[in-house]
Design a protein around this nucleic acid. Structure first.
Length: 696
RNA sequence: GGCCCCGUAGCUCAGUUGGAUAGAGCAGCGGUUUCCUAAACCGUUGGUCGGCGGUUCGACUCCGCCCGGGGCCUCCA
């Protein structure tokens, strides 16, 4: 629901050149992903027809150098044994049979039996300049992305930033792919973490409700809680009986109708607002905040419990250590247990003790996984209950964020009942997530389970050096580790707002020296854009399963493989047009299309055109890369590609002075090159949530 | 003990779901600014892809075993 389209640039409405217009109308697409699909389809048909072979997947890869073509098919190797012919011979035959294919120049035999395909560079470039991007089939149904989900009891830290940036970027990727998305941020406002801070205010600080009401209004109340939470954890360690305070508070919060519950609500709401402010600094916004308090008070669990019992997913353990608990089979123990068990055991749903997951404790209270099952049944519209909704937070840009409540507004957007869900949750919770999926499956909701994706990522830890810089005392063992885990409980970590502040002031210093003539607000805006660009890029450049060992030096870098590097490439392109007295977008719409097919061919074909063609080719891959990111749930590919494109552009920029180019048609072509790359970079950066300053 | 992730250049990481000569950034060394041009560019140093087997025409990639690091496995969330 946020930002219908993440596109930073509007597509050109019409094409000026009659030649190109006719050509483009006759085709379904000329950009990288369209050509790849067409090639694969063409080859598959040919293999069926001529060889009666049906390959499950036609592998299409990219040759090591652009000189060898744009696509490479290694399929002759695969067929060699089956057809009892040498690969080169097969490749030759296939090439002869391939004939003509729209958008392609020719097919060639290469190496030991590769079939390399060369596209018609001029046509592809013309299509890209005209921003041709034909509609592709978009799967129906709304998608729900859950991310951030920070316990509302302390300030957000760098680990939470990775979660939110990954989640928000994935939302933008889905938007780009044309999908409708709801963004949810689950709030555990009734758990032990909130209880702990409440204990801190009541037992350590001895604060009254009205005093807390005052404190809540201070600017960074979440920082106050950060320190208090760490002190409470220490306090629990001092005397065993201190922990009794937690149990009492927790119980009061769950019941939800006394002074303590009111204080807990006061605190968690205030911290939650702070989280929304922090994330909005990075342009991360939410549509709906489902809270655990409503899951409890609206009795979501009761509805889920009934279903789980009726579906024989849960059973009451009558002996052993889990006696008196409602348990289910732990994820990952699925078939083995069933097959090894006797038919009668399977009937009763009996599972070995070590394979059991307790869902309802023997005292009748439900655990976290149980509540999560109920919540996920709601997400798919399977629970038969709904939240109440009220407006909670209005962003400066007018976007409205809703929160769950027991009795809400009559008029509200519809949340839940979606077709697909993605949960951005760190890898440590993989087993819990799988247990929820397993419960859905056992309830017979296989289709929903298939569309339940745990968007798993690794944590952000600190390098020992970084930890030492922050003033933490390290044991000798810690010093030898490659990284040290952040701990909210110990108050050990880098707070999100602190990091953002540091980045902004660091960027600000540079902007001040480079552009002293700019006004104060202008410099502030640019510094913020650079800081956000650096931070978001930093969190996205690592692949999800890689632990980020956080280090200030790297995170604060604005050089090399960073967000500012890519932003700077765009600024350079913008500079060309500014100094040339042109507007890049207008130029693309009007002038670039006046570059004739012949001129595109002249400057892009052959040896001399290879280098610039490489740049055009990379620029034509936007939708291809984004498809890949969505299919693999890996935004890092986009970050890598943006950097590569920026790198190619910087090389181009260095080698080709454009404004002084004497040949008028060549100058037009070079300007079109700069404008196209600029447009694609802006687009992809927007998908990463990064904007580009006017100057840097 | 069981399950999951990681191991690639001095450091931090990519490696297109089995393909052509393993790539970036940082750090180091040496260069390039009257320019649309330095948050940049060029050159250069640097590799037993943790180890051993296996599958394959072909393995950094898949399988098995081992070594090293991390995580999860609680009537916590």
């Amino acid at each position: 629901m946020i930002g219908k389209h993440a596109l930073g640039v509007k597509p050109a409405r019409h094409i000026r050149s009659a030649t190109i217009a006719i050509f483009l109308n006759s085709l379904e697409g000329l950009l990288y992903r369209h050509l790849e699909r067409r090639l694969a389809r063409h080859v598959r048909d040919l293999l069926r027809r001529n060889y009666a072979v049906d390959l499950p997947r036609i592998v299409v890869e990219q040759p090591p150098q652009v000189e060898l073509g744009e696509y490479a098919l290694p399929l002759a190797f695969e067929l060699a044994k089956q057809l009892r012919k040498p690969p080169r011979k097969i490749a030759e035959e296939i090439i002869a049979a391939l004939g003509q294919l729209e958008g392609f120049e020719k097919f060639e035999l290469a190496g030991a039996g590769y079939i390399n395909a060369r596209v018609n560079r001029a046509y592809v470039a013309a299509a890209l300049a005209a921003d041709q991007n034909p509609k592709v089939e978009i799967p129906p149904g709304k998608i729900l992305v859950e991310h951030t989900s920070i316990n509302p009891n302390k300030a957000a830290h760098i680990g939470h930033l990775r979660n939110a940036i990954l989640g928000d970027t994935f939302v933008r990727l889905l938007h780009f792919a044309g999908r409708e998305v709801d963004v949810q941020n689950y709030i555990d406002n009734t758990g032990v973490q909130v209880a702990d801070v409440v204990v801190g205010f009541l037992h350590l600080e001895k604060k009254s409700r009205s005093e807390i009401e005052q404190l809540v209004r201070q600017p960074r109340f979440d920082y106050y809680c950060w320190d208090l939470y760490a002190r409470v954890s220490q306090w629990y360690g001092q005397e065993k009986q201190n922990r009794e305070a937690r149990a009492q508070v927790l119980h009061a919060i769950e019941a939800g109708n006394d002074e303590i519950a009111a204080i807990a609500d006061l605190i968690s709401v205030a911290v939650l607002r702070r989280h929304l402010e922090t994330m909005d600094r990075l342009d991360i916004k939410y549509d709906f905040l489902p809270r655990e308090s409503e899951i409890l008070h609206l009795h979501f669990w009761d509805a889920a419990f009934t279903k789980l019992k009726e579906g024989n997913v849960l059973f009451l353990e009558t002996e052993g250590k889990n006696k008196g608990c409602w348990v289910m089979r732990r994820a990952g123990t699925t078939r083995a247990t069933r097959q090894n068990a006797s038919a009668e055991d399977a009937e009763n749903g009996e599972v070995a003790e070590e394979d059991q997951k307790v869902i309802v404790r023997s005292n009748g209270t439900v655990g976290y996984v149980g509540k999560d099952i109920a919540y996920h049944l709601w997400k798919f519209g399977l629970l038969g209950r709904d939240f109440g909704y009220r407006k909670f937070y209005r962003y400066p840009n007018g976007h409205e964020c809703w929160v769950s409540t027991t009795v809400g507004a009559l008029d509200h957007p519809h949340f839940g009942g979606v077709a697909e869900i993605y949960n951005v949750i760190d890898a440590r919770q993989a087993e819990a997530q799988n247990t929820v999926i397993e419960a859905m499956r056992e309830l017979g909701y296989n289709q929903q389970a298939d569309h339940y994706t745990h968007f798993s990522y690794e944590m952000v830890a600190l390098t020992p050096r970084c930890a030492a810089e922050l003033g933490y005392e390290l044991s000798d063992e810690d010093k030898t580790r490659s990284y040290i885990e952040v701990s909210g409980r110990k108050g050990f970590g880098v707070k999100a707002d602190d990091l953002i502040d540091t980045l902004i002031s660091s960027a600000r210093k540079e902007v001040d020296t480079r552009h002293p003539q700019l006004s104060e607000p202008e410099r502030a805006t640019i510094a913020t854009q650079i800081a956000v660009g650096a931070l978001r890029y930093f969190m996205l450049k690592f692949t999800k399963p890689s632990v980020i060992a956080f280090d200030f030096k790297e995170a604060l870098s604005f050089e090399g493989e960073t967000g500012p590097y890519a932003q700077y490439a765009v600024v350079r392109s913008t500079n060309i047009f500014r100094k040339g007295g042109l507007d890049p977008d207008t130029y693309l719409r009007d002038a670039a299309c006046s570059v004739s097919i012949e001129d595109f061919a002249k400057y892009l074909m052959g040896e001399s055109g290879n280098a610039i063609w490489e740049l055009w080719l990379a620029a034509s891959k936007t939708s291809y890369i984004i498809d890949q990111c969505v299919a693999t749930t890996e935004p890092a590919y986009l970050a890598k590609h943006v950097f590569q494109l920026a790198q190619l552009f910087n090389t181009f920029y260095h080698q080709h002075p454009i404004l002084t180019e004497p040949d008028e048609s060549r100058k037009k072509f070079l300007l079109a090159t700069a404008a196209v790359v600029r447009r694609e970079l802006i687009r992809m950066l927007a998908v990463m949530g990064i904007t580009v300053p006017p100057v840097m």
